[in-house]
Simulated assay, not measured.
Amino acid sequence: MKRREFLVAAALLPAASVLNAAPSSAAAAGGLSLQGAINRAGRQRMLSQRCAKGWRMLVDGVLPEKAKSILDGSIRLFDQQLVDLRALLPNDEIRSAHQLLESEWGRYRSLLTDIRADAKLVWGGSEATLSAAHKLTLAYERTSGTPAGRLVNLAGRQRMLSQRMAKAYLFRQAGVNPEPAREMLDTAMKEFSKALDELKTAPQNTAQIKSELALVDQQWFFFQNSLSQRAADDMKRAAASVATTSERILEEMDSVVALYEKL
């Protein structure tokens, strides 16, 4: 099974990120497609949750060096993609959704830079930013109007769910919004499993996509095992396991999204 290192920090990966990071604004302006925009807007959904996960890890002292890399790299990539998406705002719906995302991100970003911030405000900021990013992603999908666009969105949502599950686990473990976090985790696990089944049966799947989805299936098995550690004696070790497996499944799902984008 592949064990590629996952997006340590966007600034440290100038050539090519394993997350297929968005191109510079100049490159985007030269030819960002609607499928590419769906991918990037969908990745903003994921980053909204990954930022909260990284922040919680940092506050709780869970793999602190990795946590800082996750948080710093996610913030940097979110900033970059917001700029890149400005290159493709073809209608009023998309322009309005992009403006909303910029506004929500500005408020959320200021919280993420302070480990002393109120955890409930960080939780709320991650939810508001996720909602805005989802609206932008759907606006791009509607404008695209193709089956491939829907698959990019669906697979992209799996990336978000991988981070949402980890966020919910860590916040619940820390005693922050424990009941909403429990419900969020249970719901996200069901949604991920259902969508994975749908992706595996998509008629557009190529042999390479089927192979990548098989790897996702394997990682999903390990991730579920980590998430089931709800009464572990060593809670920090359990949190580290969730954080690590969520990164691995995110990496595999990002490869799937890239393949759907090429369709």
Rank of each mutant, 00 (worst) to 15 (best):
Q80N: 10
I249R: 06
R76M: 10
Q204R: 04
K200A: 11
P64H: 11
V216I: 13
E104H: 05
T113R: 15
R182K: 15
L88E: 03
P203A: 04
D114N: 15
L151A: 12
R50I: 02
R157W: 05
L138M: 13
L213G: 02
I209F: 04
E127C: 08
N39M: 05
A22W: 06
D72P: 05
N205C: 09
F223T: 05
S96M: 09
E191Q: 14
N225E: 10
M165A: 09
S103E: 14
V62A: 04
D118P: 04
A166V: 03
D60V: 00
Q80P: 01
A214F: 03
V59Y: 02
Q219W: 06
Q163W: 06
A239V: 03
R43P: 01
L13D: 12
D92R: 14
Q80D: 13
W55Y: 10
L250I: 07
S33T: 15
D118F: 03
T201R: 15
S193T: 13
L12K: 13
V62Y: 02
S126N: 06
A41N: 05
I70H: 00
S162M: 02
A67R: 05
W123I: 07
Q229C: 06
A195P: 00
W55I: 09
A15H: 13
S211Y: 07
F78G: 00
R95C: 07
Q44L: 11
A133E: 01
R172N: 07
E191L: 11
F192G: 01
D92Q: 15
A9S: 14
S228N: 12
L250W: 02
L250C: 08
L185E: 01
I115P: 02
R159K: 10
Q218N: 15
E252M: 12
E104M: 09
K200D: 08
K2W: 04
M253I: 08
A21R: 05
M160D: 03
A29D: 12
L34W: 00
S96H: 12
R3K: 12
G106N: 10
E65G: 10
P64L: 13
M46S: 06
M184Y: 01
E93G: 11
Q44C: 10
E102F: 00
S103V: 06
I70A: 06
Y108T: 00
L101H: 02
P14Q: 13
A202C: 12
S228E: 09
L213I: 03
V8M: 08
S246K: 01
A28L: 07
F222Y: 14
L77R: 08
E251L: 11
K135V: 11
A97G: 07
E212P: 00
S69M: 07
A188K: 01
C51A: 12
G175W: 03
V18F: 01
I209P: 01
